[in-house]
């Protein structure tokens, strides 16, 4: 450990350290946790210079980000998501806006002020080398309900220190996303099951034929939807508990669907009508209360194929990271190149 760290001067609304999740301990009732939006996590890590298989831990921020003071010679960050960000060069200095979806290098004594996250739930701040909190069961992901992982198993609070694996940024140009990642649009694709037989034909028709609204009860564990009630068959809403896959949609007796996300329990006793395709899970995790969705059924093979396509596009987006424009001025060369590529004349 380098002794380098980021100090939380002001916490955001719900900042937690997350990596790709705690894999291999679900048989002991240990939820995986992990980043809600694995695509944004991967892009943030790539921008910061972390290899995909390093599974570096980053900061997941919800609704409002924190203000962080740099206590390291320098640190390279990868910031991904629609988050307001500014750099305060020294105490009392005027904040200078920073662009998201690119990397930046900050130096000792500078403050990174992160503000509102607009239009989606989460944004991600990766650091070169990763956030070096101690791993638990092979992962640094915070699971707040059992108070483990991350920083003392909880969301960040004022005065916390995020340990950094490196004390300085490696010398290289800053990188930016060539284009925002396309998360897809239209209905959320779902695979019926595992308890499809616990619902009537009419119940299934309601599920795929109606619009559902994300309620205020939406967090890392899951999203409760509001809308038309789904009818159970004679088998009823309850089952003898079985395992829960990521994106499972359970329907308790009240008839309203609940999508189970990163902090979902490993097993549960409500019937599950369908499971969200893994390619549409990041998009689901970005939903805000009040947003409307529809569900469309596909097969397992179609869902696997969607996921492989998405992973190819993610790899292509990472391969296409381009040098970022220097801050505080127009880089004519970059602008020129961009115009040639885009065919856009300003």
């Amino acid at each position: 450990m380098s002794g380098a760290r980021l100090i939380v001067e002001r916490p955001g609304l719900f900042d937690t350290v997350q990596d790709r999740g705690r894999i291999g301990f679900q048989e002991l009732g240990m939820p995986t946790a992990g980043a809600m939006d694995r695509i944004a996590l991967a892009l943030a890590n790539a921008l910061a210079g972390n290899a995909p298989d390093a599974n570096a831990a980053a900061l997941e921020m919800s609704v409002l980000g924190p203000t962080l003071l740099v206590e390291a010679d320098s640190v390279r960050i990868g910031l991904v998501g629609p988050v307001e960000a500014s750099l305060i060069a020294s105490e009392g200095a005027t904040p200078k806006p920073l662009l998201a979806d690119r990397s930046h290098t900050l130096s000792r004594g500078q403050r990174l002020k992160l503000g509102s996250i607009v239009g989606v739930t989460t944004a991600y701040l990766a650091v070169e080398g990763g956030i070096a909190v101690p791993p638990f069961m092979g992962s640094r992901s915070t699971y707040t309900r059992a108070a483990l992982g991350g920083v003392e198993g909880r969301k960040l609070k004022q005065g916390d220190a995020l340990p950094l694996a490196r004390d300085s940024a490696s010398p290289r140009a800053e990188l930016a996303l060539a284009a925002p990642f396309d998360y897809g649009h239209g209905p959320l694709r779902v695979v019926p099951g595992p308890q499809a037989d616990h619902f009537t034909a009419s119940g299934h028709a309601t599920f795929t034929g109606s619009e559902y609204v994300v309620s205020k009860e939406a967090d890392r564990m899951g999203i409760r939807f509001e809308g038309a009630k789904i009818e159970h068959s004679a088998l009823g809403p309850d089952i003898v508990s079985d395992g829960i896959a990521p994106g499972a949609i359970q329907v308790p007796a009240a008839g309203l669907p609940i999508a189970l996300l990163a902090d979902r329990q490993t097993a549960g006793g409500y019937s599950k009508i369908a499971t969200i395709a893994s390619a549409d899970l990041p998009r689901t995790c970005r939903l805000l209360p009040g947003m409307r969705v529809r569900f469309q059924t596909i097969t397992v093979a179609e869902a696997e194929s969607l996921r492989r396509d998405q992973e190819r596009r993610l790899a292509a987006a990472i391969a296409a990271l381009k040098p970022a424009r220097p801050e505080g001025g127009i880089d004519l060369r970059a602008l020129y190149e961009e115009n040639l590529i885009d065919g856009v004349v300003v």
Binding site: V191, P194, V240, G243, G247, K272, T275, A277, S278
Partner: peptide, 17 residues
């Protein structure tokens, strides 16, 4: 064998304890 999306499936041996 019950479908649980494209990252899991359930092998169900019965419905009781």
């Amino acid at each position: 064998f019950l479908d649980c999306g494209d990252t899991a499936f359930s092998v169900e041996f019965g419905s009781t304890i």
